[in-house]
Amino acid sequence: MSDSLKIENLHASVEGNEILKGLTLEIPKGEVHAIMGPNGSGKSTLSKVLAGNEEYDVSEGTVKMDGVDLLDLEVDERSREGFFLAFQYPHEIPGVSNANFLRAALQARLPKGEEIDAVAFYKTMYEKMDALQMDRKFTGRSVNDGFSGGEKKRNEILQMMMLEPKYAVLDETDSGLDIDALKIVAEGVNRMRGPERGFLVITHYQRLLDYIVPDVVHVMVDGQIVKSGGKELAHELEEKGYDWVTEELAVA
């Protein structure tokens, strides 16, 4: 069995409303998959359920990450196991500096009693920040506090680069980004592409996929994947709109 993030027949609801209705999807390690879909189709719910947000009840289905049952793990255990979610709306943590937060997150991955090497940590962090064209003063600023939309998204990618996950889900990372910021963020993601990592890029617009070119594009409607195809599917969707898919479904 090859390594993958494998979601099978996933059902999840919030406050009694079922949002995910038997979703099945497999992202083999080394590939970049994109999920597109109309508003309300359940894209963001999927990302939160995968991360383990307790607001959602999973009633059925399995999620296996390289064979490990993700749904059995706590939120933080999933993270330490190698699952990363770049948030659509990254939270602010007043008073906690970016550097301290990253350090705490990396420290949490070390065995008890082992301390992080501070010099190496700063060196790596500065390298990644340079790649994302982030000013070094961001290390001392509180996490996302007073950041612009673009700065927050760049910060998410910085965290991802520092934590080096096995699988990363990017939830509408393009929203609120101008074209320059979009290119920088995409460049950051592309640098991390490789055989040891899988990506799921959630987006409403095709624009992002010009810069992060996916291996597979899925269309999500009403809590299910209704169509999958190559990168050209994204262009088709952009041209014809989501109605095209739903109409096609109705015919079938």
Binding site: V75, S79, R80, L85, F87, H91, V96, A108, R109, Q159
Partner: peptide, 25 residues
Amino acid sequence: EDQIFYMQQRGLSEGEAMSLSVNGF
């Protein structure tokens, strides 16, 4: 809860996340 969820998603335990929030405050 959202703030704690965000921090836990980065690998901090619930207790560590709360500590860090309080220390930040």
